[in-house]
């Protein structure tokens, strides 16, 4: 893939080389018409700007996002100079950033936490857009040149769907590691009241505590909220969670369609291609307005609901309240 990328970016380098030659030759013309050239340069800025996409690793979700971004850019006449894949390796990331620095890009889209972290450190002066960073608040991803798109649906939207499906006055259980998801849970604690739901919190400190935490909480709750916390969500613990949920007819609710495919009941999550598209819109705004270097952290534009119908049948949940919605994906 990398080789493919290099092939892809070899051409723009050549063009750039020609451009430099032209620049040397035309230096006299520029001197004369400096004032006039600025505007056309500005006009062509959006179309000829050097935008670079860096993905943390090669997974379908990231590819989908970057495809969405490419499509959006094509529509907006933004050319993408190169797409890099860091293969989930920091060393690789460092090597690639050295390479990118020579390109002097105008804007970088970082897909995934690894790419976002490296880019933030290496390019403090170039506008950066990050997306697909799970639970982004955990990472120090704020800065004057950083714009981000959250990879989770807003907590309010999550609870709105939950209420729509199950009704009010439900006890929502959540298992979390306070060092990783303390912020999300405290935010949720404020939001739940609005939806007339109760939050039953259970703190854990290691993966091994998931089973016992689940045991202690399962009888006291009507629905389990699975948050993207790497202490709680592991392959083994998810199996345990799904088994307990099935046994106790407990609906499970999360922020990832992948987990729904694994066995959770319902998720509300951003559409990955739409996230890419949203990023391209942000890119356009930033490129057209060099004075603006950041737009802050954005919520995802488009959310989709994924429901596992098998799980719904097993635990006996009536999906009719959601039937009318258009943004619903039924699985399988």
């Amino acid at each position: 893939m990398v080789q493919k990328c290099y092939k892809f970016c070899a051409l723009p380098i050549f063009i750039r080389f020609l451009f430099i030659l032209k620049f040397v030759f035309c230096i006299q013309i520029l001197e004369v018409t400096a004032g006039e050239i600025i505007t056309p340069l500005r006009n062509t800025h959006a179309s000829e700007s050097a935008v670079i996409v860096i993905r943390s690793q090669q997974i379908a979700a990231y590819e989908e996002t970057s495809r969405g971004f490419e499509e959006g850019c094509r529509e907006k006449n933004i050319s993408i100079k190169a797409i890099y894949d860091l293969k989930g390796d920091i060393e690789e990331g460092k090597r690639i950033t050295q390479h990118i620095k020579r390109d002097k890009p105008n804007l970088i889209l970082a897909v995934g936490v690894l790419a976002a972290t490296i880019v933030k450190e290496q390019f403090p002066d170039i506008p950066i857009i990050f997306c697909m960073v799970i639970n982004h608040e955990r990472f120090n991803l704020r800065g004057t040149n950083i714009t981000g798109i959250s990879s989770e649906a807003p907590v309010e939207n999550q609870f709105a769907i939950l209420k729509e499906l199950l009704g009010a006055d439900k006890r929502v259980g959540v298992i979390y590691d306070p060092s990783k998801s303390g912020k999300i849970v405290s935010e949720a604690a404020l939001v739940v009241e609005k939806f007339k739901l109760n939050l039953v919190k259970k703190e854990i400190a290691s993966e091994n505590e998931v089973a016992s935490a689940l045991k202690s909480i399962v009888k006291k709750i009507d629905v389990l909220w699975i948050i993207p916390d790497s202490t709680v969500v592991t392959k083994n613990s998810l199996d345990a969670i799904f088994q307990a949920a099935e046994k106790n007819h407990l609906p499970t609710f999360c922020t990832s369609s992948a987990i729904v495919k694994g066995g959770a009941l319902i998720s509300i999550s951003p559409d990955y291609a739409s996230t890419g598209l949203q990023a391209s819109q942000i890119a356009q705004k930033l490129l057209n307005n060099p004075a603006t270097t950041t737009l802050g952290i954005k919520q995802p534009d488009k959310l989709k609901i994924t429901v596992n119908t098998t799980t719904a049948k097993t635990i006996g949940i009536d999906l009719s309240p959601l039937r009318s919605r258009t943004d619903i994906v039924l699985y399988p």
């Binding site: 997974i59 995934g112 960073v133 969500v233 922020t255 992948a258």
Partner: peptide
Amino acid sequence: FAAQILSEDL
């Protein structure tokens, strides 16, 4: 972890 959360098949 991101791959686990985001990828289509766990």
